[in-house]
């Protein structure tokens, strides 16, 4: 029974208009086998819960410091007072010592404003469907649907498969946003329920891939070829990260790979690197790993777009 299958997610996002065609709902599953250096969603990485702290929501310790009291490990201390955002008074903010924190999340339960919170949300397929169904008419009108994203949704295969099946059964278009790093058998099994694969191409050299994203690329590329042969439709996504994967050689190799599968491709998206995920690292007490990399220049992106297009690929910058 679909209702009994649970998954771990970190967000559901409505009116998503950039992750596949039409108006969509994105379901973001939690946990990923990859560790891309440029990852803009660090909360998507761990399979288990994360304690996050959003400064903006924090009302300070002036009301009793409930988080400090809730912590058995003595991991939360108080900082020096700082001015509030409107500058009218001061606020005493907590500091989480991550080395002492055991992720028990008692502080998050105690926090009235949810400044401290658990990024993981356990959800059943049916609960997920309730959120998805709400916008069914909007999908139908616009040619949209659901995008199951992550993390890596294929890492929670049972949940992802059940969700995709249920969407299909209810006539909802399904896009699967995947790294490609999962067993072929799983892709084979889910293929009939997925209308479109949003599929990342991060680096064409396996050794470099291992360094940049933590895993080699053979399985990823192999799955893509097999999926294409089995009739899958693709929207390839090529994140362009200056100095890491923007060499002429890698761009040519990526384009050549796309060219090889061109018949299976709807769109090739070239995604310029951005640093917008940086605050999320702060919230989790993690270090941002590419502090010195800047977004690629617009002219450079334009050149790459022209190059992809010159090969007859349906490319766009997103």
């Amino acid at each position: 029974m679909a209702e009994e299958i649970y998954g771990n997610i970190y967000d559901i996002q409505k009116f998503s208009v950039h992750d596949g065609p039409g108006i969509r709902t994105d379901v973001f599953t939690k946990g990923c086998p990859l560790r891309c250096l440029w990852c803009h969603s660090p909360e998507s990485q761990e399979f288990g819960p994360d304690l996050a702290w959003m400064e903006l929501r924090c009302i300070g310790a002036g009301y009793g410091g409930m988080c400090v009291k809730a912590c058995d490990q003595g991991a939360i201390s108080l900082r020096e007072p700082v001015p509030t955002i409107d500058g009218t008074s001061t606020i005493i903010l907590p500091e989480v010592d991550r080395s002492k924190c055991t992720n028990c999340l008692k502080c998050a339960e105690a926090c009235p404003s949810k400044a401290l919170y658990n990024t993981l949300r356990r959800i059943s397929v049916e609960e997920c469907m309730e959120a998805i169904r709400m916008d069914k008419k909007y999908y139908d009108k616009s040619g949209g649907g659901v995008t199951i994203s992550g993390g890596e949704p294929m890492s929670q295969f049972e949940f992802t498969l059940a969700l995709a099946k249920q969407c299909k059964a209810e006539g909802i278009h399904v896009a699967l946003d995947t790294t490609g790093f999962a067993p072929w058998e799983h892709y084979k099994e889910i293929l009939p329920y997925v209308d479109l694969f949003l599929y990342d191409l991060k680096h064409m050299d396996s050794a470099r891939s291992k360094v940049l994203v933590g895993v080699p690329n053979e399985l990823i590329l192999d799955n893509a070829r097999k999926l294409a042969a089995a009739g899958a439709r693709f929207q390839f996504r090529f994140p362009i990260i200056p100095k890491l994967n923007d060499s002429e050689e890698n761009i040519k190799a990526t384009a050549a790979f796309c060219k090889e599968l061109v018949d299976a491709i709807d769109v090739v998206q070239l995604l310029p690197y951005h640093k917008m995920g940086q605050t999320k690292y702060d919230r989790l007490g993690l270090k941002y790993r590419l502090p010195n990399v800047e977004a690629p220049p617009a002219e450079f992106m334009q050149e790459q777009l022209e190059y992809f297009k010159s090969l007859g690929l349906p490319a766009q910058i997103s």
Partner: peptide, 26 residues
């Protein structure tokens, strides 16, 4: 006035975010 604009969604390449939850630099 972040409190007043909590629902303001901005599009950043790749995903949407609540504007007030981004860092000042972003």
């Amino acid at each position: 006035e972040p409190e007043e604009y909590k629902d303001l969604i901005v599009r950043i390449a790749g995903y949407s975010a609540y504007f007030v939850e981004l860092s000042t630099d972003c």
